[in-house]
Design a protein around this nucleic acid. Structure first.
Lengths: 339, 339
DNA sequence: CTGTTAGCGCATTCAG
DNA sequence: CTGAATGCGCTAACAG
């Protein structure tokens, strides 16, 4: 059996109220009474029931973060940031991996609402389908009316009808910058590996790529645009497919580092030298980007900081008037060479 | 305001009990009554209060996992496995990052006990200090008497006095195998980068290394054993230090891949060719191991499976008589060359 | 099939 | 400074 306030009270020969007062320490209690109670607590290994407590306050001191895949370094870095500031505030973080499934994500949001999470942080690309958006809008209002916060990290602010705080990354601008970097070095036949279809991040980064191409007066051969899913193997496969189709390109731009790294391996296996024959760029600047050969030129996103900012927003009750927009930095390493 | 059972009942013109019955669906309710209630639920966007419910069952349908650092791919892979099987059972997973601090870890365990977590999964190396062990023993008994499970994943079973289910990895055997691999190829001056001090995993892997050396009749020059912390930079720094001290070695064995990869970068920057001049091996087989150049020879641990097995143990109530011992696989790639 | 009752464990009035 | 009483939201008897 597990000890309760009452059992501790009985053992200490006091009332439950007194035990409660020494537990919370915000009320005068006689020194020796306190001592007796503390001993009983230790003897019984009493641990308060967070549920009973939450029932009173209708809050739980817990925040939920929903990510696509916790084993992806992109999400790992953000989760780490969230966790770090949550620990500071003595809050429990519930991390849920939705596996990229919008329905799963909605299910998790509902679970978190059941647990009266103080905040829900949605991390990374948002699905663009309308069923998802409808459900999200309902939950957003529900969270709001329960006094909980909805924070979006790494996805754009949705319609005004859904109340949320948002932390955005420079997906569009970063993608434009890294593409321009390629073009400035003379590349005109540039392949692109996209993220999964129907996600905001995929769209934004691709848009940046196309925009830079237009601005640089290079036309994108649509046969060079192949779709990936942000996973390493999809980058690898994309190159195989490109090569198999006899595509010709002097540079490859991947929608994230993980795919860029898979792509580099495929290139190497095909006997194509990077960057001598093909330049490669990625996006995110995950830790591995620095350690592959050649080191990957990419766009650094302040991922951990994004997580920290998102968590900070989760713990504060004022609404932001505008989204927090985090910058990016073009990190030039060794994977690009002038054509 | 947030809807309650009572408010839904009122709106539907029925009793709270009836609403509860349609919510749980495990009790006969007239079709049109059910319909009316469902409409009220939707209208009010009613979401049950998990805390009120948990108060009755004294369980929460939630399991906690405590890891050292969620952004480390080792933990990411395990967390992913835990998460995957938890989702299958419709359970919420609370992932907590203790930052390698034993006191933090204890604090998290207590938080999870307050929330009446169905299980607590401790992932990765265990601290070896006695204060930690004493606290853990108390909590282990507390969890047990509350009907919760304690599962250890990637750390050895502690003393018999603490009740826990354990999933172990082949730290000792794997380390011995990969070291033997080096020795068989003629290496006799082998450097070693350890994990953080005072952790079980660090000790086990180092022990395997020494054991293999002894068995292969090679004596380890203690100046070649340098300590790291499982982080990438510590692998990088270890090589710098070794080089700075004028150490001579033909092979380097790192206690994990992350450090091995950092070490390879340091070697490359110093103009030392891997594997022509120095062979390198790692441990874990994280995703990046495949994509560095040369691809890293390492020991593959079934990390995701370990997570899945640990989660499975968390959801079952029978005690195992013996720890689950997961195998390992020596993955030979390109980072080792005969001397 | 449906309503009424009681109580899960705790913090908070309100009295002493 | 301490105790008794109340109710948070829900489900599980128990009646009807």
């Amino acid at each position: 059996m597990v000890a309760t306030l009452a059992s501790v009270a009985e053992r200490a020969g006091v009332s439950p109220a007194t035990v409660s007062r020494v537990m919370n320490g915000n009320y005068p209690v006689a020194v020796d009474t306190r001592r007796r109670v503390e001993k009983a607590i230790r003897d019984l290994d009493y641990v308060v029931n967070a549920h009973a407590r939450a029932l009173l306050h209708s809050s739980s001191g817990m925040v939920g973060a929903i990510v696509n895949d916790i084993s992806d370094p992109f999400f790992g870095a953000i989760a780490q940031g969230i966790q770090a500031t949550a620990a500071t505030m003595n809050r429990l973080v519930v991390i849920c991996s939705s596996d990229g499934d919008p329905a799963q994500e909605i299910a998790y949001i509902e679970m978190l609402r059941r647990h009266r999470a103080d905040a829900v942080i949605l991390v990374g690309a948002a699905p663009e389908d309308t069923t998802y958006r409808r459900h999200l809008a309902v939950h957003a209002r529900g969270l709001r009316s329960a006094g909980s916060r909805l924070v979006l990290c790494g996805r754009p602010a949705p319609s005004r009808s859904i109340p949320a705080q948002v932390v955005e990354f420079g997906n569009f601008d970063g993608s434009r910058a890294v593409t321009a970097h390629l073009i400035e070095r003379g590349h005109r036949r540039i392949a692109y590996v996209t993220g999964p279809s129907g996600r905001t991040t995929t769209r934004e980064r691709l848009r940046g790529f196309r925009q830079a191409a237009r601005a640089g007066d290079v036309t994108i051969d649509e046969r060079l645009v192949v779709s990936g899913d942000f996973g390493r193997d999809s980058g690898y496969d994309a190159v195989r497919k490109l090569l198999h189709n006899g595509a010709e390109f002097t540079a490859l731009c991947a929608a994230n580092d993980v795919m860029a790294i898979g792509a580099m391996t495929a290139l190497r296996e095909a006997g194509i030298k990077v960057p001598e024959e093909v330049s490669v760029v990625g996006f995110d600047d995950v830790p591995a980007a620095r350690d592959v050969t050649p080191a990957l030129t990419t766009v650094r996103l302040p991922l951990a900081e994004g997580g920290r900012r998102a968590a900070a927003l989760a713990f504060v009750s004022e609404d932001l008037t505008a989204p927090v927009s985090l910058g990016f930095e073009l990190v030039v390493r060794d994977s690009v060479q002038p054509v």
